[in-house]
Design a protein around this nucleic acid. Structure first.
Lengths: 335, 335
DNA sequence: CTGAAAGCGCTAACAA
DNA sequence: TTGTTAGCGCTTTCAG
């Protein structure tokens, strides 16, 4: 096993017959240097397959051009799009991203913070499964942190969030626009802020249109099973329902399955709209499911943007909400 | 904005009244040092909230204790579990992971390789959506690379893969074990190696049990729609079918929907088994879906293991396959 | 056991 | 324009 040491500035300098300082200038385009030597240095660098050592540079610059991304959501339903968006925005700015999965374990989180601190990351992005507030990341003051999707309990922290109220509003407005009047909501567990706020938007939209909800919203689980179950409950009480807003696409699938079973046609008898726009689920459904996209990828990109600004010394405090967007499919098409 | 420089070895040394070298020894436990000074140094370090600069250390050690993870699969269906497994295994060994999403774009891949090279990563893990072979990562010879899920076309490369043949075998053996005899397969596009190999395992299992396939396997898409469509075709030709092996869970869901529609009960009339064990899909299905888990997370962990070995100078060449595992649910329960 | 000195690879200030 | 020097933060000989 030959121990190969990668080529250094010195090597290039020696080969090109100049000093290390000159090589540095040639490569970074700093200082003043004659075009001739510049060209010669670059040529030899190329020839020797020289690759600058960014670690050494970082020691000098006192920053690493890296950030830590900490996710508490192993399964990735929500974090993954956020992380991809963030990585995309950061990568474009030549910043690299450390991936850390804390699995919702404070010990592991602490560990990652320590490790990344030693690596001198320029900042952190924190993301998680639930949009419920979480305790702040314990980093030294002055270290930039942006919360993506899961806000901090600390109100002054920088957070980029889903506009859950607006998703419920959009979904419900769309039902109304397609002529539905006897509308109900089936959503997730009460303890989830998201469930709550989506319902708030739902009720606001109904009120704005001068409609009464057919029934108080049904809260249960974020599952197909619950969607199926709730639909049975709902139709038993209100057989004349003509529109259902679901708190998630998975719930919506369950709802549509039960509707079919109960002999209701979607969208002719009942229109159904979901939230999440999880394409695989929405496209695979029968009929395909109209859904509100929460734009998680854009959320991630925005979070990255905010982190860059904070690193740059101009932090934007407080919460910011990403606008959702309606994606129309068959489940609400006008008859 | 106060420009705060983090505390250094020098600061600690000064505060503790010793030399920088001594601090280094105390903190790393290297060299010989008296218990007294050691304790004193550690105390002052603690007090000053000193955090060693790993970048500086890495410059010295000529390695960074970081690796690059390059995924070509933005959507993450397959890469995410692999990445989490890898991150888990590496994090335990105090190695940090750079996340890079190349989006299947060679230009972006090249870019990431360059950037990470400059950051002096110790190696690469490459992962992708498809299990079809991909061109090798263009890195200097001697740089450790492990392919996870998507193998390299270079046969000597180190790859850790799903045992697709075995998944098909397991699924089919299970159908046979539950007493099914008129069995068919519905799977994904022919151009996918995975589809091919799963069918190979399927046919092998049938042959081993002395059974003939009812019909040549139906290859189409990896979607619910295809599952529904194929089921109609299949039952028109062979109404007496009693077991269906599906190339994926999504296909299986479509299959089960159509079976119900055609008045067949699952599992009483027809047993259905999927592959992937995508829990959300399998648990949500009605009845819940028996499926073969491809153990992607373990695959990721193993890939990390192999990478560590390669970094350590003992690479293991060639492909290695991770054993799948059957997860039994309602869709194949014995009547 | 401890400190001084040199060096990892790179860059910025300053002389030449 | 170029080379020299010093230094980023850390570690490791090697004298003391």
């Amino acid at each position: 096993m030959e121990e190969t040491r990668s080529t250094t500035v010195r090597d290039v300098a020696r080969a090109a017959g100049v000093s290390p300082g000159t090589v540095s200038k040639a490569i970074n385009g700093t200082g003043s240097i004659s075009p001739a030597t510049r060209a010669r240095v670059l040529a030899t660098a190329e020839e020797l397959d020289y690759r600058p050592n960014d670690l050494a540079r970082s020691v000098f610059e006192r920053r690493s051009f890296t950030v830590g991304m900490i996710t508490t959501d192993s399964f990735g339903r929500f974090s993954v799009p956020v992380m991809l968006g963030a990585e995309d925005a950061l990568g474009a700015g030549r910043i690299s991203v450390f991936l850390c999965d804390s699995r919702d374990d404070p010990i592991r989180e602490r560990h990652y913070i320590d490790v990344l601190q030693r690596r001198r990351v320029d900042g952190f992005i924190v993301t998680g499964r639930s949009s419920n507030p979480r305790p702040p990341l314990e980093v030294p003051r002055g270290m930039p942190v942006v919360y993506a999707h899961a806000p901090s309990t600390e109100p002054h922290a920088t957070s980029v969030l889903i506009d859950d109220v607006r998703t419920g509003e959009l979904a419900t407005e769309h039902l109304i626009d397609t002529g539905r009047r006897r509308i109900a909501a089936i959503t997730g567990p009460e303890r989830f802020l998201a469930a709550h706020q989506r319902v708030r938007g739902h009720l606001a939209a109904l009120a704005a249109a001068g409609l009464e909800p057919v029934r108080s919203p049904l809260g249960g689980e974020w599952t197909e099973q619950w969607g199926r179950h709730a639909t049975h409950l709902l139709l038993r009480e209100h057989p004349d329902i003509d529109g259902i807003m679901c708190g998630s696409d998975l719930i919506a699938r369950g709802v549509m399955d039960s509707l079919r079973e109960l002999g209701r046609s979607v969208p002719d008898d009942v229109a159904v709209v979901g939230i999440d726009n999880w394409e695989l689920i929405a496209d695979g459904a029968r009929p395909s499911l109209t859904s509100v996209d929460t734009n998680l990828q854009e959320l991630g990109r925005t979070a990255a943007q905010r982190l860059l600004e904070a690193i740059d010394g101009r932090p934007r405090r407080g919460a910011e909400h990403i606008a959702p967007r309606l994606v129309i499919r068959e489940s609400t098409e006008l008859g």
